[in-house]
Design a protein around this nucleic acid. Structure first.
Length: 305
RNA sequence: CGCGGAGUAGAGCAGUGGCAGCUCGUCAGGCUCAUAACCUGAAGGUCGGUGGUUCGAAUCCACCCUCCGCAA
């Protein structure tokens, strides 16, 4: 079968990697987002999917498109049976959804209709959900509202991080995607409509969501935010007009502190939260390099007592 | 010309013109059943670089190098 593949990030890259191993699947074209300026020097950085294509010397035409119009110039109607979209980040117009002769499919990192939107995996962890999941849905104009062909779920524990969960879900997603594709062709598999009344939503994660306040949040919530936002945006707090990123932390149970109270030993740093206590293990003050907490205690302790 | 912080002992930080400091680490010794605890002592510096101002510069000026936060 002929497939055109659209995507950008880790999720899309992992799934593509698995699709390439299937003998009966022929990926004829890859579409990804244009390289965007990144970092302090605004260097252009290609998407992870594009880097994957280049570093593996894949012999598949790869295009960079930022909108539906550009996609329509690349793909002819009926040219492929499926258009598979993972982690692309742009709403597609109906004309694009109509391009494949069979279906336009999307692999989404939650159990739809829960967590429709841009950040399902992060929010699964942030919300401390017990069950993570993955769906293959038919794409419709309304975001992540299409009928579902197949899904799979995974029980998360309270130490799971976003990169770890993406890794697991993308492998599961690739498996059900391949099953879905084959069953549509062999058995004319039909999708099941979502129950729209149960839908929940998640948006792109703004930087401010990583701001933690020890007076207002539980240690569990902060630890969940840390695990959810570990690659972006990260979590941070302010103290005395200085921003501190928390780069590693854990919950401790044998120490009771008032909310917002800091406690230090020679090599350890603890902070009381609304409920519970957090130990900070790695930290980065604004304008400084990241440092382990024993270095931090040596130089910064005096600002916290 | 996007905005901003920073470079001082192995690490992290003070130090705004007059003898180079603090905490931690390291080493030696002591205390202790014992210790990441405590006590005593020691080693360890071209204050990022170059030039300038000055009787005198870590400190003021100019340029350069490097690291980082924000923004995108």
């Amino acid at each position: 079968m002929k497939i055109a593949y659209m995507g950008s990030g880790t999720f899309a890259t992992n799934i593509l990697d698995k699709l390439l191993l299937e003998d009966n699947i022929q990926i004829t074209k890859i579409i990804t987002q244009p390289a965007k300026p990144f970092g302090r020097k605004k260097q252009l950085l290609a998407t992870e999917l594009k880097q994957f294509v280049d570093s593996n010397n894949l012999d598949i035409p790869t295009f960079e498109c930022s909108n539906s119009k550009q996609i329509l110039e690349i793909l002819e109607p009926g040219e492929v049976e499926f258009l598979v979209v993972c982690d692309y980040g742009v709403l597609l117009k109906q004309a694009v959804l109509d391009l494949p002769s069979k279906y336009c499919l999307n692999v989404h990192g939650s159990l739809l209709p829960h967590l429709r939107g841009a950040s399902p995996v992060q929010m699964t962890i942030y919300n401390q959900d017990q069950l993570a999941g993955i769906c293959v849905q038919e794409m419709v104009l309304k975001l992540d509202a299409g009928p579902v062909f197949m899904s799979d779920s995974y029980e998360v524990d309270f130490t799971e991080t976003t990169p770890g969960l993406i890794q697991k879900l993308s492998i599961m997603g690739a498996n059900i995607l391949i099953k879905t594709l084959n069953q549509i062709l062999d058995e004319n598999l039909k999708p099941v409509e979502q129950n729209a009344s149960e839908a929940t939503f998640c948006s792109k994660i703004p930087k401010e969501m990583g701001c933690v306040n020890f007076l207002e949040h539980d240690a569990k919530q902060i630890f969940a935010a840390f695990r959810a936002f570990i690659s972006w945006p990260g979590i941070y707090f302010t103290h005395g007009d200085v921003v501190y990123k928390i780069l590693d932390c854990k919950i401790v149970s044998d120490l009771d502190l008032k909310p917002g109270e800091f406690s230090f030993s020679k090599k350890q740093m603890f902070v009381g939260c609304l409920n519970g206590t957090l130990e900070i293990l790695k930290i980065q003050p604004q304008g400084k390099k990241e440092m382990d907490v024993s270095s931090f205690v040596a130089g910064y302790k005096s600002r916290f007592v």
